[in-house]
Write a protein that binds this DNA or RNA. Structure first.
Lengths: 245, 245
DNA sequence: ACCTCGCGTTGATCTGAATCAAGGATGCCG
DNA sequence: CGGCATCCTTGATTCAGATCAACGCGAGGT
C-alpha cells in the first residue's frame, strides 16, 4: 500500500532514494520534487555541528558521511555511517544531536525543513515511510550496541567488513547478498571510532584476519573476502539479515 | 498542533501514556480507547522472544521490562530499558528483533497490532507521534553507543544512575530535574548487561562511588545521590538533557 | 533452627586492548 | 629530486576490566 514510495527513482538523482523523493503520480510527491535542491560538500567538511539549528533534511546521493559524538576530552564515538540513499535529519527536531561530517566528497539531495514538515502533515504516507526508516535505523543502532558492548576486537572488525559488504551488495543490487570485494570507505581511525577501538587495534586485527586467510588486502582500503562463511562466523552474528544504519 | 496527544491521561490507566492512548475528544482516539486491553506479566517472564510474531503493540503501565540481545555463546547485551509510559512494538514489523522480558511484575496496555495499524493509516497524528517517539529512542540509543564504546566502567555506572534519576524525576513530575534518591530497578547482573560490563565490575564501581562520597546506599538497591554535580561530572556527560530509551 | 538459593561483595590473578614508540608506504608540492 | 604530511603497520609495555574463587547476607521453606 505504500510500495510506490520505496525505491522509486528521484527526479534527476543518480541513485534511488528510499522514499522521500519520488517521481510518482501523486500531487504530494510532485510537490516534494519541487522543493528539493542539491548541496555538495568536500571531504572532511562538517555538514552540521551537534547543537546547530537544522535547516534541512535530505538524503545522501553520493559519498560517505558520518554521525559522531565527542566528549570534552576528545574521545569520539561514531554513531552512524551514512551511505548513498541514507536519510539525514529529524523532522520535528529543531537542532542536531550529533555532528555530521562528510568523510569523502559528498552530494546530498535536500529539502528545506519547513516545507518538508508541512508536506509531512498533509501527506500521511511520508510520515509512515519515515517511521519505517527510523525503526530500521533504531534496530541497526541496537545491533551496534551488541557489537560495542560485547564483541571482541576481532569480532568487531569482522562485523564491520560483513556489514559494509552487505550494504555494498544491496546498493549495487547484486545477486549475491554480500559483495566479495569491498572498498572500506573509512580510515583506520574512523573505523576505530565506529567500533570503539583504537586505530592500532584495528590495524592489528585486520592484519590478523589477513594472516589467517579470512580476507586479503589490495592496497590499504580494498578488502577481498577470501572465506565468506568464516568471516560471518568470526563476526559472531546470530542475526540473519544484519541491518545497517 | 499535536499537543493534545502528548501526556494525556488514558482511560483508566494509572499513568500518563505518551501518546497513543488518549481520552481525547477526537473520534479516532476514542476508537483507540476501544481496542485497548491490559496484560500482566510476572517478574522474569519473557514477553516476546526475538523472531516471534508480534501480535500487539502497547505501552508499559507499571513495572520494568528490558530489551535484550543474546549471542550463541551466551553473551548478552541489553539494548533498551522500558519504564512506565514507554512504548513497545513496531508498527509495520511482523516479527520482534529482540527479546522483551519483564524484570519485575508488569502491566501493559496493549492494542492488537492489526487494528492499531489500520488506525494509524487513517489517523496521521498517530504515525507522526510515533515517529517523534522513535526518533527520541534513536537518539537515546546513539547516546548509549557513546557510553558502550568509549566510557570507562566508572563513567558507565555514574551515567546509569544519572539516567535513572532523571527518568524517575520526569515520571514523578518533580520540580527537580533529577531525583536524589533512586531505586535501581535492576540486579547487578542486569546493570552489567546494560553497560557492557561484568557484574563484578558493576559491584566494584558502585562500591567505589560510595567510598568516594558521590553516592550512598540504603540496602543494595536504593541509591542516594550525595553529590549531584560530582555524579554528573563522573558520568562525563556533555549532553545537556540526556535522554533515555 | 537449619538449609538452600539468589544476590551481592571482595580479593587474587590474568589478559585483551590501550598506550607509548618507532618506522614504512604513499602521495603531494616546491 | 627531496621534504613533508597523512595514513598505516608493528613492537614493547602497561593497565582496566575480565575471570576465577571465596564468602556474606537475607528470604523462604521445611
Amino acid at each position: 500500500m505504500q510500495d510506490h514510495f520505496v525505491h522509486v527513482q528521484c527526479g534527476d538523482c543518480p541513485i534511488r532514494h528510499r522514499a522521500v523523493c519520488a517521481r510518482c503520480e501523486t500531487d504530494e510527491l510532485m510537490r516534494l520534487e519541487q522543493i528539493k535542491y542539491y548541496r555538495s560538500f568536500q571531504a572532511g567538511q562538517t555538514i552540521i555541528w551537534s547543537g546547530d539549528r537544522m535547516e534541512f533534511v535530505g538524503s545522501v546521493v553520493s559519498g560517505i558521511a558520518t554521525l559522531t559524538q565527542t566528549m570534552e576530552d576528545g574521545r569520539r564515538q561514531m554513531v552512524g555511517l551514512l551511505l548513498p540513499s541514507d536519510f539525514v535529519g529529524r523532522p520535528g527536531r529543531a537542532t542536531a544531536a550529533f555532528d555530521v561530517t562528510a568523510t569523502t566528497d559528498l552530494v546530498m539531495c535536500c529539502f528545506r525543513k519547513k516545507p518538508f514538515e508541512e508536506m509531512m502533515l498533509s501527506t500521511p504516507h511520508i510520515a509512515q515511510r519515515l517511521l519505517e526508516m527510523t525503526l530500521d535505523e533504531l534496530d541497526a543502532a541496537r545491533e551496534w550496541m551488541l557489537l560495542l558492548g560485547r564483541k571482541t576486537a576481532r569480532e568487531k572488525i569482522a562485523s564491520l567488513i560483513a556489514i559494509i559488504a552487505r550494504r555494498d551488495a544491496a546498493l549495487q543490487r547484486k545477486r549475491t547478498p554480500v559483495a566479495l570485494s569491498v572498498d572500506l570507505p573509512l580510515t583506520r581511525e574512523e573505523m576505530a571510532d565506529y567500533l570503539g577501538l583504537t586505530l592500532e587495534t584495528v590495524s592489528r586485527q585486520i592484519s590478523a584476519l589477513k594472516r589467517d586467510g579470512v580476507i586479503s588486502l589490495e592496497g590499504n582500503r580494498r578488502v577481498m573476502i577470501a572465506d565468506i562463511d568464516r568471516l560471518m562466523e568470526e563476526a559472531g552474528d546470530d542475526s540473519d539479515g544484519g541491518i545497517l544504519v
